[in-house]
Design a protein around this nucleic acid. Structure first.
Lengths: 243, 243
DNA sequence: AGTATAACGGAACATCAGTTCTATGTCAAG
DNA sequence: CTTGACATAGAACTGATGTTCCGTTATACT
């Protein structure tokens, strides 16, 4: 009478679509027709098949003939009720505020070798075609970080181990030449001829570069002008590839 | 003759792994055993099964018993030839990888205190209402990891500092009771009455829990049954507040 | 009411697809 | 030479899974 199918999608197909996404997220493959039927409370496989045909014709899914578990979800519900939705919705918060933003941060090189870190051209839109990149959710970044000032470096070697940063870690940095006290920065140390990560402190005219490892001595630099900050560390990501 | 199996992976399993990634990229689901066999020029399904078992034991893939096309690739070849390029390009058609690029992983508690880590209910869809969550891009996770087996913990205190994990870090883990050699796991040590992160090695009937810090002695446990693995570490994220 | 169409249910069917069992060849250790 | 671990085939077996056919019920429209 009133609430019609706003776009020709019935209740059950809708539920199936939802289920497909969930199941695939949790299993890594598609459910079988019978599994779908069980979920939506339908014994008849033909009926599920019937629904799937509808979803297919409407372009929501795609499946291959006579192939098990071959359903692909092409288009999720136009609704925000999935994924992030659940968590936020359950608290009654405005789902609209859940920023699904994903930023691609270019991995512009490696850090840790006896080299200054490669800095992307400060100027224009750096084309990082040949670089790989890491994807980070906006929600993990500081409130209004300017994303285009961010870049990432892969740590090479164990020279940064005292900064709790290991070989292979991805360090996400913000391009800057200055830092506030307590921030972790990448600095170029001419004496040692290397770039390292240290906590930055400026106090009574001197700069103290404090290793993360408390048993190690800080480096004191009398002339702040000499400190070559290359960027501040925003995030460190370490992936375990089962290795 | 020349470049042998660099790490115990034979020629064929290697080729299978490659094929799995390709096939999944282009079909959206896993190939069947016979399809795999055909690709690598093997008629015998049992032989392919044999190879798949190897890959599984080495932690490269995961599959479910008696379920068609249920292979998940957990760790791709250290090869750089993958990434998005091929998949999207393959048939000229826009492979619909959309929508599910970002995953919300619940932060279910803290680790590091003298407590077993809280495990989310193994069973049904746990509503993590009161928990916060971290958002991770699919691209940062192993190929087709089952996302709802993942959960996150915030590190409490510096007891994990020898595992290169600091206070405040977010550890993303996968729920499991078993592990492959070389993986970092969270284990409950009854003797010390605490949960720690250690590298896992099982060799000649014993389990060796190796601290990340090479100067520290490993823990050897004679009876593998006693080892209470709570999960394996998938990723560590450290955020620096920009204040 | 009458009829066409969509929404169901059940069950048979034919594969599809993972598992298992047996047998053979290879190769190095004893 | 014998033995055993490993790699390989082939085929049978069993359960998993998509397809199809037929019949029934509900809905809508004339």
């Amino acid at each position: 009478m009133m609430a019609r199918r706003s776009e020709g999608l019935g209740e059950r197909p809708m539920k199936i679509l939802q289920f497909l996404a969930e199941y695939q997220d949790s299993h890594g493959y598609s459910p079988s027709i019978r599994e779908i039927g069980k979920h939506i409370g339908v014994d008849s496989t033909s009926l599920v098949d019937y629904y799937l045909d509808q979803l297919s014709e409407k372009g929501f899914i795609e499946r291959d003939n006579r192939v098990s578990r071959s359903i692909r979800v092409l288009k999720a519900l136009p609704d925000a009720s999935r994924a992030l939705g659940k968590a936020a919705r359950s608290l009654g918060q405005a789902v609209s505020e859940v920023a699904t933003e994903l930023f691609s941060i270019p991995v512009v090189g490696r850090i840790g070798a006896s080299l200054p870190i490669p800095m992307p051209d400060t100027s224009t839109a750096t084309y990082f075609d040949e670089f790989s990149s890491v994807e980070i959710a906006r929600s993990l970044l500081p409130a209004r970080e300017r994303v285009n000032e961010l870049f990432a470096l892969e740590v090479d070697g164990v020279s940064m181990i005292d900064a709790m940063v290991n070989d292979g870690d991805i360090v996400i940095m913000k391009r800057t030449n200055t830092a506030n006290n307590g921030e972790m920065v990448a600095v170029w140390l001419e004496d040692n001829n290397e770039t390292t990560l240290k906590y930055f402190y400026q106090e009574n005219g001197k700069v103290r570069l404090q290793p993360a490892n408390p048993t190690m001595e800080p480096i004191i630099i009398d002339n702040p002008e000499q400190v070559r900050i290359q960027g501040k560390v925003v995030m460190v990501v370490r992936q375990f590839k089962t290795q």
